[in-house]
Structure formats: C-alpha cells, structure tokens
Design a protein around this nucleic acid. Sequence first.
DNA 1: AGCATTTCTTCACAAATGTGAATGAAAACT
DNA 2: AGTTTTCATTCACATTTGTGAAGAAATGCT
Lengths: 189, 189
Amino acid sequence: MYELDHYLEKNFPFNSTSITVVKECFSSKDLKKGDYFLREGEYCKKIAYVEQGAFVYFEYIDVEEKVCDFAFEGDWITHYKGLTQGLPSTVNIRALEPAKIQWIEIENMTACEQEAPELRTLRLQLVEQYFMQAMDRASSLANFNAEKRYEKMLAERPELFNRVPQYHIASYLGLKPQSLSRIRAKKIK
Amino acid sequence: MYELDHYLEKNFPFNSTSITVVKECFSSKDLKKGDYFLREGEYCKKIAYVEQGAFVYFEYIDVEEKVCDFAFEGDWITHYKGLTQGLPSTVNIRALEPAKIQWIEIENMTACEQEAPELRTLRLQLVEQYFMQAMDRASSLANFNAEKRYEKMLAERPELFNRVPQYHIASYLGLKPQSLSRIRAKKIK
DNA sequence: AGCATTTCTTCACAAATGTGAATGAAAACT
DNA sequence: AGTTTTCATTCACATTTGTGAAGAAATGCT
C-alpha cells in the first residue's frame, strides 16, 4: 500500500501529464535481504522511495557496524549529504528484508523539477524530516540514560522491534547488545 | 566583520534595489549577557543573523539546563521546527555575551522572498546545516566515549572553549561538569 | 526433521560516568 | 580593592555501561 504513485499524488498536486512524466523517470528495483542500496565510499547519485521492506543505515567505526538510522515503507533513502555536496558516502544502506524501491538518478530528479515544479519542495521536506529526527536522537543520547532511551523508543517506534534485530536497535541507542538485553530483563522483572 | 549586508551580498547575488529592500526588513537589536532571544513555550516567529556575540540553545529536563547548540557571529538563530510548523518553542536561546543581531519576522521574510527570490534558498541552506550538525552530534554521542567526544570537539571547534563556560560544553557533550573536569585533568597529566 | 548459523541472554568482573560535598579559582558587582 | 557569586576542580563512593565468555533460543537451510 505504499506506492510511489500514491505518495506523489497525495503530496504534490500535479496535473496528470506531469505525474506521468515524473513516474517514468523512476525505475523499480527489488532487493534481497542483505543487499546494499549504497556502500560507504560510493558517490551516491540517486534517491529512492521505499515501497516495501526495511533498511538500516550504518557506518563502520573501528570495524564495528554503528547504526545511525532505519527506513521503512514510505520513507526515502539516500545519503543526503553526499548527494547534495558531491561527496563520497559515509554510510552504508542495506536491506533488512526483501524490499522494493522506486529509484531515480538525482540528475533526472532535477530534470523532473523543470517539468513539475511542485517537486522542488521534496528536498526541503526531506531534509527537514532528517533534521528533526537527528536532533531528537542527539537529544535523547545526551540527556537520557540507556533505560529511558529504550523506553522512549519503545513508546515512539514500537513497530521497529518487530522488524529490526535487537543488536541493531542497541547500536542505534548507543549501546552494546548485552546492555540492551540487561535493560529488557530488568524491566520484565 | 560579520555584518548582515556582507552576508547577503556574498551569498545572494541580488541586484542593488533588492538588497536595499531586504535590508530594510531587518531590525537591529543589542542584547546583554543573559538576555533571551527566545524562551521555551513562546511561538518563535522570527529569525536573526548574529553580527556579534555568542548564544546557547538549551531546554529544561527535570529542572536541569540541557544544552543542545551554540551560535556565534555569522550564524542564524531561530527555533526552526517551531518556526516552520507553528509550534511553541521547545528551546531557550540566551546570549552568553553582549550581542548584536539583525532580526526579521518570518512573515516579512516571506514577503522579501517575493522581492528577492534568491532568498528562497536560505531556508534550505539553514536546515541543511542544522541537519549535518545534529547528525554529527548524534553520531558522536552514540559512537564515542566522553573522552573522545571531548577530543573531537577540541579539535573541531577549539574557539568554543574560549567563549563558552565549561559546564555548558559538558552538557552539550552529554556529561556532568565534574566528568568533563576529570577528563581534562587526566589528559593534562 | 535435523543441522548450522545467527541472535539473544546471562554472568562475573572491569571501566566509565554520575553524585554530593568540599575547596579553591575566577569573574562579576558594588 | 574588597565582597559576593559563579565556575572549576578534586575526592570518595554509587551506579551505569562495557567486556568476554558461555550457553540458550531462534532462525535459516537442505
């Protein structure tokens, strides 16, 4: 039920010719569990709408995978910083489940914006959402201990616990898997 | 040397009529040390360019002031989320030094964008910068211990240590002042 | 179903950070 | 200059989180 068409129609009041043109600029792609949408070091020149599946963003720090974000149906995936500044990606984006995405080269997206100027707000919407999320995460990490961070995540994004391995959630919360496990055990008791 | 005029001329290639009109929409204001630009709960409907001075963003969590950002000459200050979504501010912005700002109501800024369409990119530039900064902070908090966070800040923003009380830096780093003091003592030895 | 692999849990101990109190240093205020 | 207030440091002890190892549970594979 997360289709690019629906998303576009709902968010951008195109006329019907525009929407057809825009839709044709996207390519569909299926990913298997474990497939990468993007690898560290690559120049990310594309952006994709997630129609189905779950993704994890992570970077390597001292050979450890450190999770910095998740994405699900209805989210857009890209390395925003690299995309806009032409820098190599600092993150990996990998499918946690079989996934289906609609992707587009950023150049073509720019071209689409000529055809459908409504699309120009997409970038702002995206970065605003990314910003709010990053700020919330930083605030949570700086101001709350591990137990409260876990409780907040449980309250705010419960669906995450059904779809993402616990050690990835631990990493996102700035914890080792054993510590998250201990916190859960303590709360159950 | 941080004047709004210079900033505008450097960043937006206006014609000279536009720039005059835009400049007249801003009001100058001097703040004393300790003055608030914005208080938690207020509806933030303005944005300001810092010509001189230093500011701290903080919120109260269990009566404690928790620092989430700093701003200096050449930065813009506002509560972005509240400004764009019409929500009450979740943060306080207070001058740490005598300061001089050039501020504008967001409504007038929107009006200026009619006169000078170049200004429309300002919002995107701002939120992109905020996003990168929030992401870096979150990454640092999640992936590095207190000592490394301190070292990184010392390397990346050394000027901060001359202008901001240490207990604010500790808070920004997600620490108690005593812990930061201990880390510094350990490194000197 | 059975086997292999991955993920989660538990434990004992180590290391990092918080807490509250005391002291000294620095800065702000007449 | 002297006084007051704020800020930084130090210490002993408490709490939280990390670490490495072991085993249990869940999942994937044939």
